[in-house]
Design a protein around this nucleic acid. Structure first.
Lengths: 246, 246
DNA sequence: CGTTATCATATGTCAGACGTTTAATTGTCT
DNA sequence: AGACAATTAAACGTCTGACATATGATAACG
């Protein structure tokens, strides 16, 4: 892994890649301490700042953690699901906002994925997740709730639904899809009537999950998907009309 | 965004976070040029190396790109789906390998997600993706194929299946789940008989997608999921037995 | 034996300098 | 005047050397 010809591009990027590859290949087990910055600099024949830039690149991806002091250094980090959630969410959010992904496309993806874990959630739901779902529904009923708070509660409800499948890989994947949608959803102004409809569907979903009725949960999710899409279309149409008038 | 009290932790991490937040908030539009390193150093009251470490952190996440020369500098990068694929895949791969996620859990997640887009793929498939699927099936029939090559072709087949849904958000999400499974799948030794069965199911899936028969595709995917799980269980049981003997 | 002081190590940060890349500017020639 | 070539300046990439700081290990002391 000492390969580093000074031919093409940034040394720090090359070094980061070399170490990253070593980690992925399993040559550097979790919690293994990397050589000190000075040693790495010597090994790669570069200066310490260059090595540090490489290490910061890895730290940004949670691949390593650093510790100061006598027994400090850079250690291969065990990538935890919670850490990955965060990265996944910001990446997804930026993808949607920077690529002008339509609400329709994002919605479709989100509900397709959610429906994928509905059967599992129905099968394995525990009192814990069920309670969270009920609590969020209760919160959504509060009359004074702002649209943002309503959306946040919506996200919490759906995360509980996903987590009920008790599959961390699914939860991780879905976290991005669900949370990244929130900024798009925040554009929607929820009228009292649309909130009522959404809450009714949420209740139906919670009931189906409670009854371990996968198909029923799926059906209600499908309806919720349709309704959300319709709301979004409405907002966009109204916005286009307003622009036309102006 | 100039907030930077020298209270808690690494300055470079704080600076990176400040800039990242500005990008996410939309204060820094795509392709906007950041101030030069010297200017940033001045603004944050730190040295240039510290600023550089912060910028490298952002570069590692593809949030910025840098350009040398007279009109060079750091620019806010438009995060492309292809860039996100790579990050998603390495993150997923490390998550699975470092957290001892069972094959069962990973398999379940992968096939649940894949089945989520089967109906969409059936509906929207084009000749392009169908051809890829058929080509990969043909490759899988080659007798001399190594297990690794067979797995790689398997991944290509499933990616084509996912891409056929023509929803970039879904493709992005699924890329991680499908590709991250490959190292786990590589543990499996595919006998001639198991390959035959997998190829038969692949063919059935391709046929269903061709005929725009979503339910049928879903059913065959479910069978493939079951069969893959059974193969994995077999490998693990055999390995446990070998260990017991030894 | 326990507590405290010292020390060594490694990261975090800084300052200044030089090389290289690249585009814009200038200057000259036709 | 216009086109091509040389100069220049801005910015990143890298290096050297140094100091500050955190932290565990060790040694000294009561």
């Amino acid at each position: 892994m000492k390969i580093d010809p000074t031919k093409p591009a940034d040394l720090s990027a090359q070094i980061a890649k070399a170490i990253k590859d070593a980690i992925i290949a399993g040559d550097l087990p979790v919690d293994e301490r990397l050589p000190s910055e000075a040693e790495l600099a010597d090994q790669f024949n570069v200066s310490r700042p260059t090595v540090r830039e490489a290490l910061k690149r890895l730290a940004a991806q949670s691949l390593i953690r650093t510790q100061r002091g006598a027994t400090g250094g850079a250690f291969v980090n065990r990538l935890r699901f919670e850490d990955a959630y965060g990265q996944q969410i910001t990446t997804s959010t930026l993808l949607l906002s920077m690529n002008a992904v339509s609400v329709a496309t994002a919605c479709e993806a989100r509900y397709a994925l959610e429906r994928a874990c509905a059967p599992l959630s129905a099968q394995r739901r525990t009192a814990d997740h069920l309670a969270t779902m009920r609590a969020e529904i209760h919160r959504q009923r509060q009359p004074g709730l702002t649209d943002e708070a309503f959306c946040a509660s919506d996200v919490a409800f759906h995360r509980a639904l996903v987590d009920a499948a008790h599959n961390p890989v699914l939860s991780y994947q879905l976290a991005g899809a669900v949370e990244a949608m929130q900024p798009l959803m925040n554009m929607i102004t929820f009228t009292a009537r649309s909130r009522e409809r959404i809450i009714a569907l949420h209740t139906a979903i919670a009931d189906a999950i409670d009854a371990q009725d996968g198909p029923k949960a799926d059906e209600n999710l499908a309806q919720l998907a349709d309704y959300t899409q319709a709301l979004a279309r409405d907002v966009i149409a109204r916005r286009a009309a307003a622009q036309g008038v102006k």
